[in-house]
Amino acid sequence: MQGNSIGFWILAALCIFAAVQVVANRNPVRSALALVGVMCCLSVFYFAQGAEFVGAVQLIVYAGAIMVLFLFVIMLLNLGAPNPMMDRVGLSKPVALLASAALLGSLALAGALKMAPDRVGKSPVSGTVQQIGYALFDPGRPWLFAFELTSVLLLVGVVGAVVLAQRRSD
């Protein structure tokens, strides 16, 4: 077994443990923290595959920005103690079970049919800033429009956030 694969399996075990903790832990702060752990593990996976840019962006956007906001809100609402509301049995539990079973099944199927390329501990994929930039903004490729559309969507989100914040302060 190569050093790369050993690293992969250790990291995979860590990642799955953290992912289970996200849903199994009743303490919201610990749950959010476990999610940060998952994000960091994913980022290391990207780095190990040579997709350094994707790994760094994963770290900056998810672990560094979004999860900090999550934690900030959880702490602001002081959701320290387990909430009895979470024990309420409704339609959500069976639906969630069904959805996760379907996802797991389709992933397992994809794995069994070898639909995804087997890249564990193998050659790096190309993910440098330059390559991604040229690919995204190449007029000959279809992604420029989608990219601009996404930035408009983000802009709408920013304007919406400002409008919502302004109404509160009146």
Binding site: V36, E52, F53, A56, L59, G64, A65, V129
Partner: peptide, 17 residues
């Protein structure tokens, strides 16, 4: 690494935890 400066930005943002 090619993305050294992005790696640094990522780690600085992790320090707040």
């Amino acid at each position: 690494v090619n993305i050294g400066i992005l790696y640094l930005l990522g780690l600085t943002s992790l320090q707040v935890y």
